[in-house]
Amino acid sequence: MVETHFPELDATVPPPPRRGILSTASLYKLAIYIILIVAAFIAMVPFGYVVSTSLKSTMSLFAYPPDWLPDEPTLDNYRNLIDRYPFWRWLMNSAIVAGSVTLIKLVVDSMAGYAFAKMRFPGKEPLFLLVLISLMVPFAALLIPTFIIVRELGLLNTYWGLILPGLASPIGIFMMRQFIESLPSDLENAARLDGCSEFQIYRRVILPLIKPGLVVLGVFTFMTQWTSYLWPLVAATKPQMATLTVGARSLTSDFTQDWGLNSAAAVLSMLPMILVFIFLQRYFIAGSIAGALKE
């Protein structure tokens, strides 16, 4: 029998050459890690200080040099906040407003984005231009007209008064349009031939495919609404309609400033945002880089 040898079929692959422990690549990696750790530390310091302050008693607040970790941590600031102020009401108002704006925007913006990206209708280009133009107008410039409209509609000090202006932000429409435009048109065509109506194409084909984009838009919208201050301050003058940001601001008067109480309010305000981000982080990162990596 003739013995043959086929190197390409040989299962034994020679091991890659060993590299030094500190090759150029690993030094580069190390440098990147050091820069990232320093950046993360700088970003975390204010947050850490707020958490630390919220756990300090009034007496130890002004100790010098400042204690990063209080010797006797206390939850008094949190108790004070919850017992003396309508904190839960503020939290509920914020959750209702931010949650509603987010949910409604996801539906409306994705539908509008679909229309702008994939449908043909008269006036599509001028309308989209209008959306782009409205992106460039700062909210402060719209504050007074918006206030007058909401007042005339009798919506001051109502949830709708807080929610409706938030829905008009065009950034979501723009974002959804970009996402949907990157989907191949043959997918909708296939769905059309499979018997889908225009709404079914949106609901059954487009929506599931833009999930990462929806998560990014959802997180951005929720975050913007949760931290929104100016509009709730103007549109909700009654204490029971105050959102967290407005409520937290009311903890400070002209003559007193309770840093511990303020810090406790800040920490509790941040918690829902952190939870939202941790829960959706996977989608969020995938979605925010999707535009760069999609073919």
Binding site: P184, L187, P208
Partner: peptide
Amino acid sequence: MVFQNYALYPH
């Protein structure tokens, strides 16, 4: 119809 890029629903 069968499309050039198959147009299968990825999800």
